[in-house]
């Protein structure tokens, strides 16, 4: 089956950089989720490029600070995670599948290699990851198409970080109706 060959090839190419994988959909996988080390990311995408142009759907950036039920051991705490979602075999009616490459990096060394030379669209999503969780991707400028925070946004604050670098309370907009509602609710409780 296609997904089994893909998995075998990935394991062979990545070697020690391959961590684990699981699939959704039986018997033919609809989704393949693959945990890999960041050192192997470029090799994995190079392999996908050799199969044809990799169709990148999106990259999901996430802060793992408050994860209490990690899917893979060690996938929690002071780490950042990027999930690269590719669409595979789209020309095969009924046989299209999703390949998710999941990469984590510690917050003290948030550097992940860029894949934008292999897949041009990745630059937009890499820039997004840089703006919203503070991943560092060498070779990708912080400004340009896909800059996700306003021009006057402070440098060291990332909107979706769940630690001290996240949005401070004074930057969060409070609506008057919400305050009134909370006051009213508080009053009801006191009564």
């Amino acid at each position: 089956m296609k997904h089994e060959k893909l998995l075998e090839d990935m394991k062979r190419i990545l070697g020690d950089n391959f961590i684990s994988s699981y699939q959704k959909g039986e018997p033919e996988a609809k989704q393949l989720w693959m945990r890999i080390k960041k050192e192997g990311l470029r090799d994995a995408v190079k392999y996908l490029t050799s199969l044809g142009d990799p169709q990148l759907s999106f990259i999901v950036a996430m802060d793992l600070e408050k994860i209490t039920n990690p899917i893979v051991e060690g996938e929690s705490g002071k780490k950042l995670m990027l999930t690269y979602t590719f669409t595979m075999f789209h020309e095969d009616l009924g046989g299209e599948m999703i390949l998710n490459l999941v990469v984590t990096t510690p917050k003290e060394d948030p550097v992940i290699p860029s894949i934008s030379d292999l897949c041009p669209l990745a630059e937009v999503y890499e820039r997004e990851a840089m703006s919203i969780v503070g991943v560092e991707i060498p070779g990708v400028e912080k400004t340009g198409y896909g800059k996700w925070t306003p021009p006057d946004f402070p440098e060291d604050i990332y909107p979706l970080r769940l630690d001290e670098k996240g949005l401070p309370d004074d930057m969060k907009r409070r609506f008057r109706w919400r305050e009134e509602l909370e006051k009213k609710k508080g009053g009801d409780q006191n009564e």
């Binding site: 609809k30 044809g52 142009d53 169709q55 990148l56 759907s57 669409t87 075999f89 789209h90 020309e91 095969d92 009616l93 009924g94 046989g95 299209e96 599948m97 999703i98 897949c119 041009p120 669209l121």
Partner: peptide, 29 residues
């Protein structure tokens, strides 16, 4: 293909990519 175009933008360029018939979500399969 290089720029991962989607929908009618991709299909208008001859890319046979339609989630309904390729991936088959819901009752589309």
């Amino acid at each position: 293909l290089r720029l991962s175009a989607l929908g009618p933008t991709a299909r208008g360029s001859g890319v046979k990519k339609d989630v309904r018939w390729g991936y088959g979500p819901l009752a589309y399969g």
